[in-house]
């Protein structure tokens, strides 16, 4: 068996949603492909037309699984691909779950003013209050807390639900969302935009004309270069931290499961002992990932809050408390 293929299939994105292989036949959902090519315009069809290397409307998969267009001179071109892939389905699902969950809670509060919730709403309130008091209010503080809490809480719940969805191995879950760079880049960009679009005059002055000896900033803008690089390293670190953690978790769990199958060729005793060990470790890793799922969502929120609070120096709404 090819472990690499299995890993990249489970961790990566695809145009088909593979549910299970039964008697050697894969059972899968063929998802819609949406392509815009500058040569032939819009294409919209089911991915079943491209199965097993077929060419449809001049499009086919290349060796990396990307849809390419075959041109008349025999060369390949990369059209703009906004297909509804497995991960896009996952994102829609996560969005739906997040919106439903939070709006359900908000609705409960509207119906029961000044009451304390129980059950699901109580659980969500616990998480929201914990984050609001310990992250948003203690890092940002003042009236700014109310201003930025919706963004930070949305990011937290979106990431948390993405992570948890990725941990459930059966259909329709199990896609690796926050272990995909497109997802984490978007989240980090959102934080970058929030930080820099709401930044105060004082914040920009600190970047463009910091309080350092003149020779560090005048003829050669050394400090400015460092500060501007710093602007981009922050979202970059957010991107990589989340990506690496979730990606690593998925990879390790899958590798452990694969070990059960690769050890078949090593004899019965070896296979059985490897199965036991792999299972034990897989259970442990799943527990660990449950913690990481929460932790990474929490870290992303905390770091975002800290970047936001740094960009609010000197704002009227900011409290005296500042993160350095």
């Amino acid at each position: 068996m090819n472990t690499d293929e299995i890993l990249s299939e489970h961790i990566g994105d695809s145009h088909d949603w593979h549910i299970i292989t039964w008697n050697g036949h894969p059972i899968e959902l063929h998802l819609p492909i949406l392509i815009w090519s500058k040569n032939s315009g819009w294409h919209a069809f089911s991915s079943s037309h491209l199965a097993e290397g077929q060419t449809y409307e001049g499009l086919r998969y290349n060796e990396n699984g990307k849809v390419v267009e075959m041109l008349s001179d025999g060369s390949e071109s990369h059209p703009i691909d906004i297909s509804i892939t497995k991960n896009v389905c996952g994102l829609f699902m996560v969005s739906f779950i997040t919106i439903t969950l939070i709006l359900y809670c908000a609705n409960w509060y509207k119906k029961h003013p000044l009451q304390a919730p129980k059950g699901l709403v109580g659980l969500i309130e616990l998480v929201i209050c914990y984050l609001y008091d310990n992250v948003v209010d203690s890092v940002i503080g003042g009236r700014n807390s109310v201003r930025f809490a919706p963004y930070l809480l949305t990011a937290f719940f979106f990431i948390l639900i993405c992570n948890l969805v990725g941990l459930i191995p059966v259909f329709p879950f199990g896609m690796n969302l926050t272990g995909n760079i497109a997802v984490t880049v978007t989240l980090a960009t959102a934080t970058f935009l929030v930080v820099n679009l709401t930044g105060t005059k004082h914040y920009w002055k600190d970047i463009l004309w910091p309080d350092v000896p003149w020779f560090l900033k005048c003829p050669i803008p050394l400090m400015q270069v460092i500060e501007i690089v710093g602007l981009f390293t922050k979202p970059f670190s957010l991107t990589i931290r989340l990506l690496a953690n979730i990606f690593a978790g998925h990879t390790i769990i899958l590798s452990l499961i694969c070990m059960i199958f690769t050890s078949i060729s090593m004899g019965v005793t070896m296979h059985r002992s490897m199965t036991a060990v792999a299972l034990l470790f897989a259970v442990f890793m799943n527990m660990m990932e449950l913690l990481v799922a929460f932790l990474q969502a929490f870290v992303f929120t905390t770091m975002s809050a800290s970047y936001i609070s740094q960009a609010q120096v000197g704002s009227e709404e900011a409290s005296e408390f500042e993160v350095t």
């Binding site: 990566g12 695809s14 949406l34 991960n87 896009v88 497109a182």
Partner: peptide
């Protein structure tokens, strides 16, 4: 599908 170069499609939908 690549893991470490973001896909435009996924980026767009995300």
């Amino acid at each position: 599908m690549s893991l470490f170069t973001p896909d435009f499609g996924l980026l767009f939908w995300m």
